[in-house]
Design a protein around this nucleic acid. Structure first.
Lengths: 200, 200
DNA sequence: ATTCTTAACGCAAAATATTTGCATTAAGGT
DNA sequence: ACCTTAATGCAAATATTTTGCGTTAAGAAT
């Protein structure tokens, strides 16, 4: 429950890590999550968040700058992985399982909202940080594969031809990707054994 | 009744298309483009736009609702195609030329800003409309191909494996896609004749 | 062409949100 | 325990957004 993953070694922070600061950040993040959850992204406002968190609005403005920066900060915190992908015993099934869960999360209304929040913050490199999370997960799968003696996949190829189509459709169309669709994308990385490239 | 050459049959609009309304919409759109161009998307505000356009802020609020809706409206207007893709004489070179220009536009700072503006508008189906523009262009290329007797490409495949990677990298990384990168993506649709899958 | 109806606009006041100055609190170091 | 200073709370100042109401002009009817 001590939510902050600010492990004490990362003292490179330019902001104070101490008790009060962290307490306020948690309160504000919780308030954003709570309000964002029940109000389905209907004009959530800074004074609202401040009241819910029990802080003054000026604190939020000073720490985060504006609403979109705060929403983006909360979004990356929620997008940041808390656990490694499931270990299914083989790299191909690992990848399929991970992509299935990833597609589900990102295509859901909350996932779409999180991505929009991250993309709206134009100041820092938050979008590329989120892309880094995905890359990290794929790297983890590959490390497992190597440990098992399997040949790893090409991460860039998975990003370009599996992750990117899923995200593109999640952002620019409003239809959830089916499990079948995800598996067809992965078939390009791991072609089905029996069939050749029967592209219809 | 002298002035406007408005086609009289398309009266299906639910908003007035007459002189003043259109004049104000143009003035506001021009103001957004002008301010957005010089200020590199640094906190542009509704009163600023209103002053530049010579209208009162309340008009903007009443017509568009809020700033993000206005920015999204301007963005789709700018993203909407004004001309068909260049005709290079063959479908493969048509596709390569179109994708090169598309990648250049979308990866530029202004293209990224336009996409963010469109994605920020959660009310209507603006994002899917923009995806429709791309789809329309690809359909045009295919229609040309058929007219020439060429075999058309698979539009969904181009969207998933050429367009989507370009957009994903434009949104989530900050590196422009090289022409070489785009061509390698299209090589999956039109494999190079001489070389086999020399992935190195 | 004139009149009628009404959507869209301008204006100004009210409500709300954001910024800023200053006093106070508490974190981290001496 | 003391010192330094980043971070906060409070409240005033400023800016933005909303709203009521009178006016303008577009589109239809006469």
């Amino acid at each position: 429950m001590a939510g902050l993953p600010e492990s004490e070694v990362t003292v490179k922070e330019r902001v104070r890590i101490g008790g009060r600061s962290a307490r306020i950040q948690n309160a504000v993040h919780d308030a954003v999550r709570k309000l964002g959850a029940l109000s389905t992204r209907n004009q959530i406002t800074v004074p609202q968040i401040a009241a819910e968190a029990g802080v003054t609005p000026s604190t939020i403005y000073r720490r985060w700058g504006d609403l979109s920066a705060l929403l983006a900060d909360v979004a990356v915190a929620r997008l940041r992985p808390i656990a490694d992908p499931d270990d299914t015993g083989a790299v191909e099934t690992d990848l399929r399982a991970f992509i299935e869960q990833y597609a589900e999360e990102m295509s859901s209304p909350v996932g779409q909202a999180l991505m929009r929040d991250v993309l709206s913050a134009l100041n820092q490199g938050l979008p590329s940080a989120c892309a880094g999370f995905t890359c990290d997960h794929l790297t983890t799968l590959n490390a497992r594969a190597k440990a098992r003696g399997e040949t790893p996949f090409d991460i860039d190829e998975v990003i370009d031809h599996v992750v990117a189509p899923i995200i593109y459709r999640a952002l620019f169309s409003d239809q959830m990707p089916t499990l079948d669709y995800c598996n067809r994308l992965i078939d390009r990385i791991y072609p089905p054994a029996r069939k050749r490239r029967t592209a219809s």
